[in-house]
């Protein structure tokens, strides 16, 4: 499985501090993606891409908003179908997440 490097530059979030944490690997749409221990799922996803999900209303991309569990705009699915609030769920090694494809 190749490393998800092509997308690194396209992340929305930028890591500024707390960089010396243990590295973990998770899988976003089957692609191995680097995370740091203590990251939320939102942080992992948005340091690699610009959005998390598509809204059920218009289908447009969303990337969370409040980051404190109130706005419901950062839901993410795991491969086994459970739904998590990505801003308030801490990453665990080998998690398998699914995000939709970007609108071309």
């Amino acid at each position: 499985m190749h490393q998800n490097t092509a997308m690194v530059q396209q992340g929305q979030l930028v890591r500024l501090v707390e960089l010396n944490r243990k590295k973990l690997t998770i899988y976003i749409n089957g692609v191995a993606t680097e995370a740091l221990e203590g990251d939320t799922l939102l942080t992992v996803i948005l340091t690699h891409q610009k959005f998390i999900r598509k809204t059920e209303f218009s289908g447009s991309e969303r990337a969370g908003f409040c980051l404190m569990g109130a706005c419901q705009d950062c839901w993410v699915f795991t491969e086994d179908g459970s739904r998590l609030r990505s801003c308030s769920t801490l990453v665990q090694a080998n998690m398998k997440l699914v995000t939709p494809k970007a609108t071309p």
């Binding site: 929305q12 890591r15 500024l16 501090v17 908003f65 409040c66 980051l67 404190m68 706005c71």
Partner: peptide, 17 residues
């Protein structure tokens, strides 16, 4: 992002939005 959310990103995750 919300203002508070921007602060959470930094304080809680060490990231800028």
């Amino acid at each position: 992002f919300s203002m508070g959310g921007a602060q959470v990103a930094l304080k809680f995750q060490g990231c800028a939005i």
